[in-house]
């Protein structure tokens, strides 16, 4: 007998070949379905899982961004700028020892003390002040102040409640006939560069002020800001025009 173009015996393995022939299309279909399900449908359904998780990630991200945007819109920009300026005033605006001497001199004069002498150590290249892990550079200055003994405690407290933040590293005081001489090593702090942040990765809690940060702002809120210094060192580089002195290059002679 002929089946699907092939010459077949009457019986195959004791089963009628016509009976086997009846199952061939079914087997072919089943095979086709198995192959197509494995090659098309199953990968497609796996893709749905990925798409679903991508969708939910995107929706979550959108929801978080909306929350952050709402929070930022609710923040008073003037208050934010004021707080940021206030925190910035706790640190030196530049790595400048003269500025620090100026600050200490101002505080001292407020309490009747005079700056008798000061030593700054800009340092060697090999010993240049290096920022710590947190990017803070300590600016030291050694000073001698002379003034009334009765007000030395006020002076120390005045220095400890000043902005930029001053830290007394060493202290030596001698009093004689109501006059005190204070030998101090004072440190102030300067931050190198700005912190680098990826704004999209920030969480809402990272955007909002923490309790410790609010407490810090309240604490230093009572400090005195000495930011109205107008020393020539502070103005260097601003509006200074280039001047040609007409000096000859000794190596071109």
């Amino acid at each position: 007998m002929k089946m699907y173009g092939l010459e077949m015996p009457e019986k195959t393995f004791g089963i009628d070949s016509a009976l086997i022939g009846a199952f061939v299309p079914l087997l072919g279909l089943v095979l086709f379905i198995i192959i197509s399900v494995n090659l098309v449908v199953v990968p497609k359904f796996e893709e749905f899982g990925e798409l679903n998780s991508r969708l939910s990630t995107m929706e979550n991200q959108t929801a978080r961004t909306v929350e952050k945007t709402k929070y930022l819109q609710s923040v008073n920009q003037e208050d934010l700028q004021r707080d940021a300026d206030f925190i910035s005033s706790a640190l030196l605006p530049e790595s400048n020892s003269y500025f620090l001497v100026g600050v200490v001199g101002k505080v001292a004069s407020k309490y009747g003390f005079q700056l008798d002498s000061f030593v700054i150590n800009p340092g060697k290249i090999s010993e240049a002040p290096k920022a710590g892990m947190d990017g803070v550079v300590k600016i030291p200055v050694t000073l001698s102040l002379v003034g009334p003994t009765l007000r030395h405690l006020e002076l120390i407290e005045g220095m400890e409640t000043s902005l930029p933040i001053l830290s007394i590293d060493t202290f030596d005081m001698r009093s004689d006939n109501g006059v005190s001489r204070l030998d101090l090593k004072v440190l102030a702090f300067y931050v190198e560069g700005r912190s680098k942040v990826d704004i999209n990765k920030l969480t809402l809690s990272e955007l909002s002020l923490k309790k410790e940060e609010s407490d810090l702002l309240s604490k230093i809120g009572g400090y005195t800001i000495w930011d109205n210094l107008s020393s020539s060192t502070m103005q260097k580089g601003q509006g200074v025009e280039f001047r040609d002195y007409g000096r000859l290059d000794p190596f071109s002679l």
């Binding site: 923040v75 940021a84 803070v136 120390i156 704004i199 990272e206 955007l207 940060e213 604490k219």
Partner: peptide, 26 residues
């Protein structure tokens, strides 16, 4: 505004560290 906040928070952390380690002579 975000960068300002982050800069402020960064500096606040540093200032808090400085104040925390500072010996209060007064």
């Amino acid at each position: 505004s975000i960068l300002l906040t982050q800069d402020m928070k960064h500096k606040a952390k540093l200032v808090a560290g400085v104040l925390g380690n500072r010996f209060e002579y007064g």
